[in-house]
Nucleic acid binder design. Structure first.
Length: 419
DNA sequence: TGTCCACTGGAAGGGAGGGCTT
DNA sequence: AAGCCCTCCCTTCCAGTGGACA
């Protein structure tokens, strides 16, 4: 290849460009900074609850509440790290072990017990054993020696209603069965009302101590961003307005520090892609839009096939100019599309659940309305741009043929459902 | 005032799919 | 291979309901 071609310098130019970032990792959620601004009080509170473990006294169970991005996880993990360091330094009376579990990932009784048991060297399969057996394996493994186990259950509210409340009960009652070891639970929940769904015995045992993380305000978010920006960016690349703007935009969303960090990082990426030397207000604005759009596209792309068809049905109805879209209409259209694709047709009951899931994802908005004599139904509105989403859906090879599908024209009378 | 529509949403349970033990 | 167990997705059944209409 002729290296004098006009493209030959493209890579060099790319490499020579002064990057904006010094260490982008500092803006990731997983990064643990050396200090946690505006969370000193919560940190001390948690330390004071857990510290007795070092003296061989079983710490009370703790529940930590707060919305997403208020620093619950990072503070807890930070405290766990401090605890580990303390244990490593001195020979304390009691051995202390900490375990972190995210209940969004590990969301069933079986999986939690299996993960815990594995943590203690037990060989438990992904599935197959009766849950009691896994529990026994875990309990016996823990009880082999005198030690204090502190289990951090992140997003503990995810366990409720999936049979997982049972596991919380088991874990909180476990000490009664242990001879040598002691177990304490630290639960982290986004949902303030979460305990009300629990058995009252579990409620009192789990909520012995409670710590509430209030949302950050814009000023506090600014401090956090400043601290991270110092590590993440080269000096002088940030316009003065950038950090306050990121903070303000994130504060609008219940003071979510994660959102603020994402915003700052994506702003940097947008600027970098444009070969800009500094990050300016416009980059932040564009980053904000990009994050929003990316989130929904990703959510839609990863939907199961049936939900995609359902969403496609709603888009078609909206394109046809329906002012109000009801469950019945969606189900009708969905049936046609599914038959068109020779896929199984789910029942209306199931479809109703899928619609609720789409609602929770923020892809659509449904509200139950009563039309008097004409029954009760959900009124459904799309929360995403129809045309753009149609495109995303048609990317799915299974749905591709639907681009040729045409809905019959709107009828003047409310035709009853056909079979 | 009662009726009745078009659903909603809870409960129970079936069965496929994964994986174990004996 | 047979007999279990767990999870996920789904169906079936059904009581409940807000409000327009007769």
């Amino acid at each position: 290849m002729d290296l004098k071609s006009p493209f030959s310098s493209i890579f060099e130019a790319f490499l020579e460009r002064e990057p904006i970032f010094k260490n982008k990792e500092a803006l990731r959620h997983s990064y643990t900074p050396s200090e946690l601004p505006h969370r000193e009080a919560e940190l001390k509170q948690l330390v004071s609850i857990i510290a007795p473990a070092l003296k061989g006294v079983t710490p009370s169970n703790v529940l930590i509440y707060g919305k997403s991005g208020t620093g619950k996880t990072i503070v807890s993990r930070y405290v766990f790290e401090l605890l580990k360091e303390a244990v490593a330094k001195k020979n304390y009376l009691c051995e202390v072990q900490t375990i972190y579990l995210n209940c969004e990932v590990t969301d069933t009784k079986y999986r939690i017990l299996a993960t815990l048991a594995k943590e203690f060297g037990e060989n438990v399969p992904f599935t197959g054993w009766p849950t009691d057996k896994v529990y026994n394996a875990f309990r016996d493994a823990v009880d082999k020696k005198r030690q204090c186990i502190i289990i951090l259950l992140d997003e503990i509210d995810r366990l409720v209603g999936k049979g997982g409340d049972n596991i919380i009960y088991n874990l909180t009652r476990m000490n009664a069965e242990l001879k040598e070891a002691r177990v304490s639970i630290v639960g982290i929940s986004n949902d303030l009302k979460f305990t009300s769904y629990l058995d009252s015995r579990v409620q009192s045992s789990l909520g012995k101590e409670e710590i509430v993380f209030s949302p950050y305000n814009a000023k506090q978010l600014e401090d956090i961003l400043k601290q991270r920006a110092e590590v993440a960016f080269k000096p002088g690349v940030l316009d003065d307005v950038v950090i306050p703007l990121c903070a303000a935009l994130a504060a609008r969303e219940h003071g979510d520090a994660r959102r603020a960090l994402d915003l700052l990082r994506v702003s940097g990426e947008v600027a970098e892609r444009e070969n800009a030397e500094r990050i300016k207000e416009e980059h932040v604005r564009r980053a904000d839009e990009k994050i929003e759009a990316d989130n929904t596209v990703e959510a839609v792309r990863t939907l199961p096939a049936q939900s995609k068809i359902l969403l496609y049905s709603i888009i078609l109805l909206e394109e046809r100019g329906e002012k109000t879209i009801t469950t019945g209409e969606v189900y009708d259209t969905y049936k046609r599309l599914s038959k068109n694709l020779s896929l199984d047709v789910l029942t209306q009951r199931r479809v109703s659940d899928l619609l609720s899931e789409l609602d929770i994802l923020g892809i659509l908005n449904s509200s139950v309305v009563s039309k008097g004599r004409y029954g009760r139904t959900k009124e459904i509105k799309l929360e995403v741009p129809a045309a753009g989403m149609k495109h995303v859906l048609e990317e799915d090879p299974r749905l591709k043929v639907l681009s040729a599908f045409r809905l019959p024209q709107m009828q003047l009378t409310n035709a009853s459902t056909e079979r």
